[in-house]
Design a protein around this nucleic acid. Structure first.
Length: 688
RNA sequence: GGCGAGGUAGCUCAGUUGGUUAGAGCGUCGGAUUCAUAACCCGGAGGCCACGGGUUCAAAUCCCGUCCUCGCUACCA
C-alpha cells in the first residue's frame, strides 16, 4: 500500500446454512476479521465489514429432501442461529445479509448477465443424468447406485461413502434417482463455463508477481499450485431447482452454481448496507483507493484467489482484493472439527456453559489462532489462558489499580506533581504500544498483536511491583500520587487497545474507568500521543472483576461431553449399509471365488494406494492390483492367505492389468483386513 | 506419485535480507512480596533449530537428498 487507503471493504466468508457455527469458524475467519475491522474503526477509518449467509447449493437442497421439509425452512433455521451467534460474540458486521435476499438475486443475476452479454462465458452441451418422471436433471448427489468398485449399492453420484472413491454419476451401475426412484436417462444439457485458462496470465501477473511478498505463504503457495497445475474452464451453472435462476432464455431449470453466486453475496450485502445507511456502495467495490480484504479459511483459497477475482476482472468494473489472509484449520482436542460427527464446540452451546465469557473464547482462539499451520484447541489450554493470563495478568492489574485508587483517593485520579525517571520511562514505553500493536494487526498477525496487548498489562504489573506504592503510602504520599497516576494511564491505555480483541471487556473497563473513549472519532490515534488518558481530577468507578477463574470441574464437564460424543460416534458406526436386494442363486453362482496366497507384492510406482500383487490361485499365479497400500506394507503380506474373486473382468490400473479382486473388510478404525479361511485350506479351493 | 504448507524448549509459537552465548508466552523449579481473584514481580533449569550431505570465514536461515504431519491432486474394481 503506497498510501493510506480511503476506505476498507472487509469480507468474511459467508457461512453455509446447513449447520450452526463452531469455534473453528470463529478462530479462522470471524474473530480475525472482527479484530481487523474494529481496529480500523478505532483509527477513524471508513470501514464496511460485510458478511451474510450462503443459502444455495445442492447440499441444502438434498438435506431438505431428506428431512421432508423445504430448503427455505432449513436456511431460515440456520440463518437465525448463525446470525445470533455472531451478534452474541460481538462480531461487528456492518451488515449481515443472506443470499436468498431479493437484492442478492438481482445482483448476482445482473453480474452473470453482464458477463454473458460481454461474451465472457463459453457454452457447452454435455450429457447428464435426467429424471424423466421428475422432469429434471440430477445433480451428482441426487443419484445413487452401485459403486463400481466396492459394490455398495448406496453410492452417491459423486462419491461412494463406503469406500471413499470419488465417482462420476455416469459411472454408477444401476443408477437411481433419489427423487423418484426411477432410472435416469442420459440427456443433453447446456451449461456455461468460465474459461479460467484465459485468466492464467492475469493471475500470474497479479498474484505470482504482484503479491509474492505480502500474501501469506500458505495462500500464495496454494494459488501457485493451482495455476501451475493448469486452469480449466469451470461450470458456473447447474441443473437444479434451488438457487438463482440463470438469466438467459432457454435456461429454465438451471441455476447459478453456488460458488458463483456466493462471493457476489459480498457485493449484495454491501449494497443492502449502503441503501440502509444512505451511502453509495460503489466506491467500496470500484474505487482503486479502496482496500478490499477477504478473510477466509484455507478451504476457500481457490475461490477467493482464483475464481472470484477472475469473475471481477471479467466483469470489468471491480477492484481486486488487496489481500486474502486465509487461516489454516483448528482442531479440537487432537481431532478434526466435524459438523456431522458433532466434534465441535458450538457457539450457542458454549454460551450456555460459559455465560458472559465471550471474550475468553475470543482470547483463546486469537492467542492460538491457526495463522501459519493447523492448531489444536484444548479445554485445558482454554482454562490456562483464562486463569493465568486474563485473570492473573490483565484482570488482576486493572483490579489492583482501581482498588488502590479508590482506597487512596476515593476514586479521583491524583495530580502527579513531579514525575520520576521510572515514571517517565514507563509512560514512554506505554506510548509505543498503539503503534506496535497496529503494526502487527496491519500485517494480519493477530496472535502477535494480542501478545503485545498483554505486554501492556505486564508493563503495568511490573511498574506497580517495582514502585510498591502500598509500602510508601504513609511516608511519601506525594510519590504515591505520581505512581498511581502512571498506573492509571496504563489502565486507560488497556481500555482502548483491548477493544478489537476483547470488546466486552473493553466496554466494562471503560465504564469502570468512567471514560467511554469509544465515543471519539479515532480513539486509537488519540491515545497514541496522549499524556493524560485519564486526567488528574477525573473520577473513576468502583472495581469489579473483569474475569473470573474457571474451575477444573467446568473443564472436566466439557471433556466428558466430548468423550460422550466419541462413544456415540462409535455406536453410530452401526449405521451399516442396508441389506442389498435379494438375488437368485444363479446370480451368486456366477461369482468364482477361490482361496489363494500372495506370493509377491510391490508398490505401484506413482500411486499412493496401489499394490501390485502376484497371487497363487491354485489355477495359476496371476497379477492383481489392489488399493490396499494404505493399510499394508508389501513385505508384510507375502505369504498371506486371501480370498480372490477370480472371474472378475480384467482391468488395467495405471497401466497394469489386474486379473481379479482380493476380498477385504475393515476394522472399526478403517484399517483393511483380509478375508481368509480360519483353518488350513489349499490354494484354489472354491468358495460357495 | 505430483504440488503446496509445516517440522525450533514439556506445550503454543517468534526468528525479517545467513553474523555475537537461538528468543517469547504458558508449564516447571527456586526466590522475593502482600495493593490485588495464592494473583503480581525476580531468577534458574530446559534446545545436535526433524535427519544426512553440501556452499561459506560463518547456516535454524541458502542448495541437494531423506523422513514425518497436514492440505490439494492422481490412483482404489
Amino acid at each position: 500500500m503506497p498510501q493510506l487507503p480511503k476506505r476498507y471493504t472487509i469480507t468474511s466468508a459467508l457461512p453455509y446454512t446447513n449447520g450452526p457455527i463452531h469455534i473453528g469458524h470463529l478462530a479462522g475467519v470471524y474473530v480475525p476479521a472482527d479484530i481487523y475491522s474494529r481496529y480500523l474503526r478505532l483509527r477513524g477509518r471508513e470501514v464496511a465489514f460485510i458478511c451474510g449467509s450462503d443459502e444455495h447449493g445442492v447440499a441444502i437442497s438434498m438435506r431438505a429432501r431428506k428431512e421432508g421439509i423445504s430448503p427455505r425452512e432449513i436456511i431460515d433455521k440456520y440463518h437465525t442461529i448463525i446470525k445470533k451467534s455472531f451478534a452474541d460474540f460481538g462480531i461487528s458486521f456492518d451488515n449481515y445479509s443472506r443470499t436468498s435476499a431479493e437484492i442478492h438475486h438481482k445482483t448476482a443475476s445482473d453480474f452473470f448477465r453482464k458477463m454473458y452479454d460481454d461474451g465472457k462465458f463459453i457454452e457447452e452441451v454435455t450429457e447428464q443424468l435426467y429424471d424423466e418422471k421428475a422432469g429434471q436433471f440430477l445433480a451428482d448427489r441426487f443419484v445413487i447406485g452401485t459403486c463400481p468398485k466396492c459394490g455398495n449399492e448406496e453410492a452417491y453420484g459423486d462419491q461412494c461413502e463406503n469406500c471413499g472413491t470419488s465417482l462420476n454419476a455416469t459411472d454408477l451401475i444401476n443408477p437411481k434417482s433419489t427423487i423418484t426412484g426411477t432410472k435416469p436417462i442420459l440427456k443433453e444439457t447446456r451449461h456455461w463455463f468460465l474459461p479460467l485458462d484465459q485468466y492464467d496470465g492475469f493471475l500470474r501477473e497479479w498474484i505470482l508477481k504482484g503479491h509474492k511478498n505480502d500474501w501469506k505463504p500458505n495462500v500464495y503457495g496454494q494459488v501457485k499450485s493451482w495455476i501451475d497445475d493448469g486452469l480449466k474452464p469451470r461450470a458456473v451453472t447447474r441443473d437444479l431447482d434451488w438457487g438463482i435462476p440463470v438469466p438467459v432464455e432457454g435456461a429454465e431449470g438451471k441455476v447459478l452454481y453456488v460458488w458463483f453466486d456466493a462471493p457476489i453475496g459480498y457485493i449484495s450485502s454491501t449494497k443492502e448496507w449502503a441503501a440502509r445507511e444512505g451511502k453509495n456502495w460503489e466506491p467500496y467495490w470500484k474505487d482503486e483507493q479502496t482496500k478490499l480484504v477477504h478473510f477466509i479459511g484455507k478451504d476457500n483459497i481457490v475461490f477467493h484467489c482464483v475464481i472470484f477475482p477472475s469473475m471481477l476482472k471479467a466483469e470489468g468494473s471491480y477492484i481486486l482484493p488487496d489481500n486474502v489472509p486465509a487461516n489454516e484449520f483448528l482442531n479440537l482436542e487432537g481431532n478434526k472439527l466435524s459438523t456431522s460427527k458433532n466434534w465441535a464446540v458450538w457457539l450457542h452451546e458454549y454460551l450456555e456453559d460459559f455465560p458472559g465469557k465471550q471474550d475468553v473464547l475470543r482470547y483463546t482462539l486469537t492467542a492460538n489462532a491457526p495463522e501459519t499451520k493447523d492448531n489444536d484447541f484444548t479445554w485445558k489450554d482454554f482454562q490456562a489462558r483464562n486463569n493465568n493470563e486474563l485473570v492473573a495478568i490483565f484482570g488482576n492489574f486493572v483490579n489492583r489499580v482501581v482498588v488502590l485508587t479508590n482506597k487512596y483517593y476515593e476514586g479521583i485520579v491524583p495530580q502527579p506533581g513531579d514525575l520520576a525517571e521510572t515514571d517517565k520511562t514507563a509512560l514512554a514505553e506505554l506510548k509505543k504500544y498503539p503503534e506496535t500493536i497496529a503494526a502487527s494487526i496491519e500485517r494480519y498477525r493477530f496472535r502477535e498483536a494480542l501478545s503485545e496487548l498483554m505486554n501492556v498489562a505486564r508493563l503495568g504489573n511490573k511498574y506497580l511491583a517495582d514502585e510498591e506504592p502500598w509500602k510508601i503510602a504513609k511516608d511519601n504520599p506525594e510519590r504515591v500520587k505520581a505512581i498511581m497516576y502512571v498506573a492509571l494511564q496504563v489502565a486507560g491505555m488497556l481500555s482502548v487497545l483491548s477493544e478489537p480483541f476483547l470488546p466486552f471487556t473493553a466496554k466494562k473497563l471503560q465504564q469502570m474507568l468512567g471514560r467511554p473513549t469509544l465515543d471519539e472519532t479515532a480513539p486509537w490515534d488519540a491515545v497514541t500521543g496522549a499524556d493524560d488518558l485519564l486526567p488528574a481530577g477525573h473520577k473513576i468507578n468502583k472495581a469489579e472483576l473483569l474475569f473470573s477463574k474457571i474451575e477444573d470441574k467446568e473443564i472436566e464437564k466439557q471433556l466428558e461431553r466430548l468423550e460422550q460424543t466419541k462413544q456415540e460416534n462409535k455406536s453410530d458406526n452401526n449405521d451399516l449399509p442396508p441389506q442389498k436386494e435379494t438375488i437368485s442363486y444363479e446370480d451368486f453362482a456366477k461369482l468364482d471365488m477361490r482361496v489363494g496366497t500372495i506370493v509377491e507384492a510391490e508398490k505401484m510406482k506413482k500411486a499412493d494406494k496401489l499394490l501390485i500383487l502376484k497371487v497363487d490361485t491354485g489355477l495359476d499365479v496371476r497379477t492383481i492390483v489392489s488399493g490396499i497400500a494404505g493399510s499394508f506394507k508389501p513385505e508384510d503380506i507375502i505369504g498371506k492367505k486371501v480370498t480372490v474373486l477370480v472371474n472378475l473382468a480384467p482391468r488395467k490400473l495405471r497401466g497394469v492389468e489386474s486379473q481379479g479382486m482380493i476380498l477385504m473388510t475393515q476394522d472399526s478404525a478403517g484399517k483393511l483386513v483380509f478375508l481368509n479361511p480360519d483353518d488350513v485350506v489349499e490354494n484354489g479351493e472354491t468358495i460357495s
